[in-house]
Structures are given as structure tokens and as C-alpha cells.
Design a protein around this nucleic acid. Structure first.
Length: 159
DNA sequence: GCCAACGTTGGC
DNA sequence: GCCAACGTTGGC
């Protein structure tokens, strides 16, 4: 059995928030629109069924981790890349860029969001990818220590 | 809204 | 293959 991996995925709440996700009947969504090679490679090569993923709100008044989702479908082609009407359309997708997406299902919500400010104050979290200067990567690996540390900061509500 | 950091593009 | 120009991200 493969060991469990942990991740963090960013989303802009103005575009698609964690609340939008848990409002869906299935609490499940495909994570389309990732257009960065490094992020794609994480999804394509390393995302495994059952991996846990922090959902992080970026580009908002209070950047924070809101909840946790789990991978319910491993990487498969992102059809939006081939759809001219989609905002995620990519001219080169057909020939060159193999964009993929995964499906995730929301499983926990933090009673209170774990703000970026708070993450910055925790010694054990000091080396998180999220805090690195200029880190724009939308999908980031999280270590087991970081995962457990964050889970202990606030009560987790099962969804 | 500003702007620094970063990834990508394209001329050479 | 270099690197300047450009577009985007995202904290503040």
C-alpha cells in the first residue's frame, strides 16, 4: 500500500470557494484549470486516491486554509484545455500540453480558518512551501508533520 | 490598487 | 541557449 501524501491547493474564493464545494450535493469537484507544469506533475504523478488536500483561499482579505478534501479520482485529461469556449482553453493542449485534473471531495472543515498569519507564527510550519517568498505554485506538497500540526490548530468538523 | 516575484514567450 | 519583455499571481 502506497503511503499517504498530503497537499495544499489554492483557490480564489471569488472564483470557487470551499463553501461552493461543500454546497454541491456530492461535495465533489474536478480541479480543472491547472496550467503550471510543476503543479500538473504533482497531480499527474503523485496524487493518489485517498490523499488529503488542504483547500486554501488565496487572493482574498484573509488568506487561509479552510478545510480538507480527499482525492477521489486520480489524474485524467482536463477537457477544458481543448474547449475553445472555456476560459481554460489552451491552444497548444492538443499537440503539446497534456493538462490533467483530479477529483476531490470535501471531508472536513476547520471550525475556524487557519489564517496565513497564524501559519507564519507556528515554528513547525516555518518551512511550508506556502510561506516561501513569491511562491505562486497553486498545488503544493505538505509534509506529514505540517499536516498534523495544522490539523491540531483548530477543531475539525466532519462534513 | 500596488508591485515584487515568478513563469513563459520569442527575437536573436 | 540567452535574456528582455510580458503576463500573472497573490500578499499587502
Amino acid at each position: 500500500m502506497a503511503s499517504q501524501n498530503y497537499w495544499l491547493m489554492k483557490t480564489e474564493p471569488g472564483v470557487f470557494s470551499f463553501e461552493n464545494l461543500i454546497d454541491l450535493p456530492s461535495k465533489t469537484t474536478s480541479w480543472e484549470g491547472v496550467r503550471n507544469y510543476q503543479a500538473r506533475n504533482f497531480m499527474r504523478d503523485l496524487f493518489k486516491l485517498g490523499d488529503h488536500v488542504f483547500i486554501y483561499h488565496s487572493n482574498t482579505d484573509e488568506p487561509a486554509i479552510i478545510g480538507i478534501a480527499k482525492v477521489v479520482k486520480e489524474a485524467y485529461p482536463d477537457g477544458h484545455a481543448l474547449d475553445e469556449n472555456s476560459k481554460y482553453f489552451d491552444e497548444k493542449a492538443k499537440t503539446k500540453n497534456g493538462w490533467v485534473m483530479v477529483d476531490v471531495e470535501a471531508i472536513y472543515k476547520f471550525e475556524k480558518p487557519i489564517t496565513r498569519e497564524r501559519i507564519g507564527k507556528e515554528k513547525k510550519l516555518a518551512s511550508m512551501w506556502l510561506l516561501r517568498q513569491g511562491s505562486r505554485l497553486s498545488i503544493q506538497p505538505v509534509t506529514e508533520v505540517e499536516y498534523k500540526t495544522i490539523c491540531k490548530l483548530e477543531k475539525l468538523l466532519k462534513l
